[in-house]
Amino acid sequence: MPNPRRMSRRAWVLTWAVLCVAGLTVTAWLQAAASPPEARPERRIKAECREHIADLEGQLDRARRSGEEKVGIVTFLPIGVDCTDERADLLRGDR
C-alpha cells in the first residue's frame, strides 16, 4: 500500500506556487484597502519668528517672480531667538 503522506515533487511545487500567489494577492488587496496616510499637520510658528518667516517668504516670492535661476537670499535670525527649525521647514518646502 502506498504511503499517503508522501507527495510528489510536482505537488510540492504546485502547493508553493498557490501559496505565493495567494500571499501576493492578499498583500496587494491589503495595500489597496489601507487608507492613505494623513497629511502632516502644519507646524506652528513661534510668535517671535512670525515676522522673520513672513519677511523670508516675501523674499522667496520676489525671487521666484523675478525669473532668475540662481538667486541668493540672505537671512538674519533675530538676536536671542531660535527660528532655525521654522526657517529650515520653509526652505525645504514643508510649509
Score class of each variant (00 low, 15 high):
D85G: 04
R6P: 00
D85T: 09
G23Y: 02
V81S: 07
L14N: 15
R95C: 03
A47F: 01
R92N: 13
V26K: 02
G72H: 08
A34D: 03
D89H: 12
W12L: 15
L77N: 13
T27W: 10
D55T: 03
V13I: 15
E42W: 01
A63W: 07
P36I: 01
R65Q: 15
T15G: 10
A28M: 02
G67P: 09
R43P: 01
I45K: 01
A88S: 13
R40D: 08
D55H: 07
V74R: 14
I79N: 12
D89I: 01
I45L: 15
A34Y: 00
S35V: 04
Q59N: 14
D55R: 09
T84A: 13
D89W: 11
M1H: 04
R65Y: 10
A39P: 08
C49K: 01
G72F: 11
V26R: 04
S35P: 06
A28W: 09
L90T: 05
R87S: 12
C83D: 07
E57F: 00
A34V: 00
V13E: 13
R9H: 06
L77D: 15
A32D: 07
V21T: 13
V21S: 06
D55S: 10
R95Q: 12
L77G: 14
A47Y: 00
R65W: 06
S8G: 14
A11N: 06
C20Q: 02
A39W: 03
R92S: 14
A39K: 14
P4C: 10
A63K: 08
I73C: 06
G80W: 05
E42M: 07
K70M: 09
P2D: 11
I45W: 05
R65T: 09
R95L: 15
W12C: 10
S35M: 04
E38T: 12
T75M: 03
L91M: 12
C83V: 02
R64D: 07
Q31H: 08
S35Q: 12
R50H: 03
L19D: 00
G93P: 02
P2E: 09
L14M: 12
Q59R: 15
E51H: 03
D89N: 12
G72Q: 11
